[in-house]
Design a protein around this nucleic acid. Sequence first.
DNA 1: GTTTATTTGCAAATCATTCGCATTCGCTTT
DNA 2: AAAGCGAATGCGAATGATTTGCAAATAAAC
Lengths: 140, 140
Amino acid sequence: MEEFENQELFKKNNIKNTKHRNLVLDVLKESQFPITTEDIYLKLQERGAHISLSTIYRILDVFANKGMVVKAIISEGSKAMVELQHLEHKHHLICKECNKIVAIEDCPFEEFAKALEKKTDFDITGHKLEIYGYCPACKE
Amino acid sequence: MEEFENQELFKKNNIKNTKHRNLVLDVLKESQFPITTEDIYLKLQERGAHISLSTIYRILDVFANKGMVVKAIISEGSKAMVELQHLEHKHHLICKECNKIVAIEDCPFEEFAKALEKKTDFDITGHKLEIYGYCPACKE
DNA sequence: GTTTATTTGCAAATCATTCGCATTCGCTTT
DNA sequence: AAAGCGAATGCGAATGATTTGCAAATAAAC
Ligand SMILES: [Mn+2]
Ligand SMILES: [Mn+2]
Ligand SMILES: [Zn+2]
Ligand SMILES: [Zn+2]
């Protein structure tokens, strides 16, 4: 049935239902937090899947173009890595010290969007929000 | 006086006031919207400044570590380019079709942050927010 | 099953970012 | 104002991430 959900999603987005897209999508679904292309690659390797890194890049491109995932730079630190957002709508609170990530369920933006649409005459379809600070352990 | 403001900012952030940091900061200040490292490089070239691309990378790293600028991936499209946010607190509304960018003055997040701090016990220091949709001309 | 367009693996190419080291520069101390 | 010293810079090379070309495999449609 996990498979079935995937298939639906592919159909809805007009892309072929391939073995590799299923693998990548499964990893994305399981992942609580944004992950890198490399992370996905390694996870699939562990599971014994035979998939090439460039295929994952291509799949993520397709997913991103279809709006199924979102790219972002998360850790503020030295390396600004490209990552993927989870499919559900949620945001993250990231510790600038230890990089701990906490998922936020609420989104303060929903109501604001309506007003903004009126003001700007845009058709607003989505947003990215990431929140930074220091976690309980790291703030002193 | 522009120079003076820069100098103040450098002092406040405990970094040396160098010719190149001034140049880069000026470009950032002028720029209404986020720009890439390369953009800055080209702008400075046009002005006849002699500066190396790696120096700009290094300066932007310093600025980012001091919280003077923020890195993000803006355009959702094919190339996920790393960019820099303007110094003032503002957000952007980006057209997914024509890439038009409109600056948003209000921020819906301020109040939400307080509640979130209480709930998570984080010390929240900042956030990134980008909004996507279709501009008046492109929505149909 | 056959057909056809799409997807994939693999290796090579490209692009962005970082690094090493010699030189220059900014700030502090005489 | 000169000297000293650590930090910043230029340049080219190295690294790392992402993209691309092309032949082979696969999925969807017939
Ligand atoms: Mn939201
Ligand atoms: Mn804000
Ligand atoms: Zn922490
Ligand atoms: Zn538009």
